[in-house]
Write a protein that binds this DNA or RNA. Structure first.
Length: 661
DNA sequence: CGCTCCCGCCAGCCA
DNA sequence: TGGCTGGCGGGAGCG
């Protein structure tokens, strides 16, 4: 660990302690002690993955924007030509003021003039400060003391204008600081600016784990911890941070961002994650649904869905109204709820704007103009790039995803294969053990998809040469020998570093990965019991052999040190269909690849949650004798207590997984 | 005046 | 019981 942070728990809440105490000399956090090379690399921000959708005013006029009716069904995205005008306030007042580096160079004349980030300073009478330790000075001290070369790097990269702006900014900061005690303006206290300052503390592509202590960050930035939560929640939804323990997070930066976005996009396509939770799933009196309802309200889930809206919309532009209405509970359509949702959307949008993933625009509609957000991030995710991003070893994975070659890697061995794959589980050991999920998330397998588009499949297994591991796991398979003519390239993306590690197999038609004809998506915890095949509508699946690589859906019990997942990676072909164009009529989409039913095999009425297993939940059961440890073989993943209610920690663990929709 | 969103109360949860 | 987490909405800043 390069960081010098102390991830240990700190008692006390910054927000609840007296400000004087909170503003004690902060311990140096991780990013301050980084390797100079790392800092240099970090400041040389790589280009964004995927096509740059930023466009000038000319292009904006041609921009499509999705309105509510278009987003109601992600699969029915209709381009509506909305007149997007960029007015002076199109650019949010707090966007990218202080973010150094080449980043998203807004070149338009309306580029926001960098304002001086400022965090609120409590009135002296309210919280007497032992020293005039303003947040801005604090931040400046942090940056300059830790990595003075950052400034040099910045200065080298900035052109004369930007240099001038920076100087002016510094001057303004100093002037305002000298005013002393004056409450910074609303702009300067905005969440967006705070997020920028937060991001400035950490490298975009950390080479090593960087630990974040919320307390320290809050102190460093001079804000209450509550505000940090808002940022963390959104960042967590993008897997830019991971919760390690209370008050302690791991910073991943953008290392996994593209992979995460790709995952969100896929999930959105598969299960329509952009859809709001259905009313029937939030029935009254049902504790499970109640907690699920609460989860659905979380900022993280909302952030995920919000991002998903962009990723499934062709226009990459979402109006605030449509987003709010889509994200709001169907049974909570009051104006008050709507307003609350909009508030949260602004919060999320501020963070996403700071991340340069979106920007605010306005669209003209019948009744004036409406605020909207345009996606600036990547929109197409090469599976190989996603895989490469995922497999980037923590120690040397500083190569940004965008810089990865577009050449598709057929299969890459992930670094996690070399390590006990129980990182996430072990990580949560230090956290409070949450309850098991009890809600029935919109698991892929449970999603009532349109079978005309996603036809049901039959799987059969005839090959004998399958590894015993595979057979032990799924002895009921019928696996056909790999056909010689089946020379179509197999594209596999294993996403283990994601919050929801998954296997995505893209079976490209004519080798076109951009237009894969098939997806084989294996939710990481769906085990072998739920594998879903999505075929393109035009795909005839009769006799279709899908190359499939089975990867353990979830780490084997903690006692199993190295299950050697590579042993699972023998490609296998699943014969699809045969009884009809898409196999047995009426077959469920969620193909069940269950091992032979045990003598007292209960009907698996319990949903397979998409949430990661907690250490408790991964405790092997006596009957889990197979090599593959599926959620089912691990026994009930939902303890009785967990059925009643889900802890907040569990809600946190739910991040990254599809909400019930 | 409406949009934007800061701010902090307070409740759920856990150790 | 205290701390952590974060949902929530009042209401102020701002254009």
């Amino acid at each position: 660990m390069l960081s010098g942070s102390s991830p240990g728990l700190r008692p006390g809440s910054a927000s609840q302690r007296p400000a004087a105490e909170s503003r004690r000399e902060p311990e140096r956090t991780g990013p301050d002690l980084r390797d100079p090379d790392l800092r240099e690399r970090d400041r040389t921000r790589p280009e964004r993955t995927g096509p740059d959708l930023r466009c000038g005013p000319e292009e904006e006029n041609k921009m499509f924007c999705v309105s509510l009716k278009d987003l109601s069904s992600p699969a029915r995205v209709v381009d509506l030509r909305g007149d997007l005008q960029r007015s002076a306030n199109d650019q949010k007042e707090n966007v990218c003021a202080g973010r150094p580096g080449p980043g998203p160079a807004w070149t338009g004349p309306d580029r926001p003039t960098p304002s001086s980030p400022r965090t609120p300073v409590k009135p002296a009478g309210e919280a007497p400060l032992p020293e005039p330790w303003t947040p801005t000075a604090n931040l400046k001290m942090l940056i300059s003391a830790a990595c003075p070369d950052i400034r040099h790097c910045q200065m080298r990269k900035c052109d004369a204008v930007e240099e001038e702006e920076q100087e002016q900014e510094v001057e303004e900061e100093e002037e305002e600081e000298e005013e002393g005690g004056a409450k910074p303006s609303r702009k300067q206290r905005s969440l967006g600016l705070l997020c920028q300052k937060f991001l400035a503390l950490y490298p975009d592509y950390p080479q090593d784990k960087v630990h974040i202590s919320l307390d320290e960050v809050a102190v460093s930035l001079g804000v209450e911890r509550r505000r940090i939560y808002d940022i963390i929640n959104v960042l967590e939804s993008l897997t830019m941070v991971d919760r390690v323990a209370k008050n302690c997070y791991t910073w991943y930066g953008r290392r996994r961002l593209a992979a995460r976005l790709g995952e969100l996009q896929l999930l959105a396509h598969v299960q329509g994650s952009a859809a709001a939770p259905r009313e029937e799933e939030v029935s009254e009196g049902d504790a499970v649904s109640a907690t699920a309802n609460r989860k659905d309200k979380s900022l993280r889930i909302m952030s995920q869905r919000f991002v998903s809206l962009f990723l499934v919309s062709e226009s990459r532009c979402v109006t605030l109204e449509s987003a709010a209405k889509l994200l709001i509970d169907h049974n909570a359509t009051s104006h008050s709820k709507y307003k609350t949702k909009v508030r949260r959307l602004y919060d999320i949008a501020n963070v996403l704007t700071s991340l340069e993933l979106i920007r605010k625009v306005h669209v003209r509609e019948d009744k004036g103009r409406k605020p909207a957000f345009q996606w600036l991030g990547p929109v197409r995710f090469s599976p190989a790039s996603v895989a490469m991003a995922a497999v980037a070893p923590p120690g040397g994975g500083s190569q940004p995803i965008a810089a990865q070659s577009g050449r598709e890697a057929k299969m890459t061995r992930h670094a996690s294969f070399n390590a006990p794959p129980i990182r996430s589980a072990a990580r949560r050991l230090v956290s409070s053990a949450p309850c098991s999920p009890t809600s029935r998330p919109a698991a892929v397998s449970q999603q009532p998809l349109d079978c005309s588009r996603h036809p049901p499949l039959n799987l059969s297994h005839t090959k004998e040469g399958v590894s015993t591991t595979l057979q032990a796991a799924a002895p009921s398979f019928q696996l056909h020998p790999h056909s010689e003519e089946d020379s179509a390239p197999q594209r596999l993306a294993y996403l283990p570093s994601l919050s929801q590690p998954s296997v995505v197999l893209l079976y490209g038609a004519a080798g076109d990965l951009a237009l894969p004809s098939h997806y084989l998506y294996v939710p990481h915890n769906a085990g072998l019991n739920n594998i879903n095949f999505l075929l393109s509508a035009s795909q005839s699946a009769a006799g279709l052999a899908l190359p499939c690589v089975l990867v353990p859906s979830y780490p084997v019990a903690p006692g199993d040190a190295h299950p050697s997942p590579l042993g699972f990676l023998s490609p296998a072909n699943f014969l699809v269909g045969g009884a009809g164009p898409y196999g047995r009529p009426g077959a469920e989409l969620g193909v069940t690849l269950a091992p032979p039913p045990p003598p007292s095999s209960p009907e698996p009425t319990e949903p397979q949650p998409l949430t990661p297993r907690t250490p408790k939940e991964t405790t092997p059961t006596p009957r889990s004798g197979g090599f593959f440890q599926t959620p089912r073989t691990l026994g009930s993943v939902v303890p009785a207590a967990g059925r009643k209610r889900r802890g907040s920690a569990q809600r946190r663990l739910d991040v990254g997984h599809a909400p019930a929709s």
